[in-house]
Design a protein around this nucleic acid. Sequence first.
DNA 1: GTGGTCTAGACCACG
DNA 2: GTGGTCTAGACCACC
Lengths: 129, 129, 129, 129
Amino acid sequence: MLFSIHADGPVPIYEQIVAQVIYGVAAGAVKVGSFIPSVRELAEQLLVHPNTVARAYQDLERLGVVTPRRGRGMEVTSQAPTACRSKRRDLVRRRIRDALREAAASALTPDEIRNLVDEELTAVNGKRR
Amino acid sequence: MLFSIHADGPVPIYEQIVAQVIYGVAAGAVKVGSFIPSVRELAEQLLVHPNTVARAYQDLERLGVVTPRRGRGMEVTSQAPTACRSKRRDLVRRRIRDALREAAASALTPDEIRNLVDEELTAVNGKRR
Amino acid sequence: MLFSIHADGPVPIYEQIVAQVIYGVAAGAVKVGSFIPSVRELAEQLLVHPNTVARAYQDLERLGVVTPRRGRGMEVTSQAPTACRSKRRDLVRRRIRDALREAAASALTPDEIRNLVDEELTAVNGKRR
Amino acid sequence: MLFSIHADGPVPIYEQIVAQVIYGVAAGAVKVGSFIPSVRELAEQLLVHPNTVARAYQDLERLGVVTPRRGRGMEVTSQAPTACRSKRRDLVRRRIRDALREAAASALTPDEIRNLVDEELTAVNGKRR
DNA sequence: GTGGTCTAGACCACG
DNA sequence: GTGGTCTAGACCACC
């Protein structure tokens, strides 16, 4: 499980942790029944305060992605993969939708918008190669 | 000049005001030399705190879009249209880029991402018809 | 809005705050559109740390009972009464169910259990007079 | 001696073990002079950490329910039945009392509370038939 | 060792 | 003024 956290930027650290766990589970990189890193361990790895990790884990628990096993850690639940794939799709769709709505509200023409989208889409795909 | 403000939601109200003025100028709906509404007037119209409008106007002034005319209000500058078209493009591109980066980070496949984009793109265009 | 908090005892303070707001809304003592006390205000009143109150308020927001109004406070939502009455019933029923299941598991006879329940029920009702 | 342990849920495992031994003795299912399972044996049976069982047995010893016999295990004491019947009653009464107090604090009417109690009471009794 | 709660206090964005 | 986030560190229960 690899995390990359941007401590600056507008997105709270704990939200970044939540999202990355969700993406990891959705992608199958984190298996059902396995344990995500302990609060202290991950805090040390990410150079953030344990409380920040703990808050992320509470959110993940609330989402049904992990369940606390007392004395052992946070275990990935059986319904996590389904929930995470759905959640991932929702998160991504929501962000795309908001961006495109902003674009439409800006009175840019549909052609201009599509050009921008295509440019950024190839840029992103290029990065993934 | 029509404003639509979403008091809830993650985007600060003052940013919404700034963006909508920029979009209005960029689209040619707000002319050079005209005056945007007074702080009090707009605050009343939008049911927001005057401080919020004032902050938006400060930003617009700092961006060179409007300039204060004592006793008369905020006048749209001659360089505003050029600046706003550029700024608009930057704003929209930035949001699209961020959304697509998030999509890539989520480990969704490029195909799935493109499908989501296409769905939302037609949805947005549909709304504009 | 009156709160009574038991800082000792097994129930976390933030849960007590959550429950009491829910009960207040369910009982009609807290109206839709009104604002619950600010974090700092309630923290001072209850002699607890503001963070503790903030955590309770986050839970209430997650439950859809209140919504943050930036710069103004936490407003009771329109769906709060329905949600709170339902939630209250669930909470109380859950506690009663657990107690009675424990009683059944203890191999006490149904008659003994009913006697205990009746005793405690009259004791509680007596306190409310 | 049959145990049913819920590893999740709010009740600590060691408390569940303690309670079930108490209930077994109170109901006469566990006889004076008999031996309860060894720590290792029970831990293996319940898929629980031996420390957890050991802690439960410490509590039972402290309560005077069992007494350690070197090399042979934990023996049920002669005063255990009386103590367990009393303890059982206390435990059950305490849980019922707490549940009903919560119900009263929730501002549900006495009638609503009684209805909930009756519903759950018949539900529990139904399960025992 | 694990997570959970609480206090303490800083800093920030927003209105 | 409001809530939101983060760091810091204590204490606890449980395994």
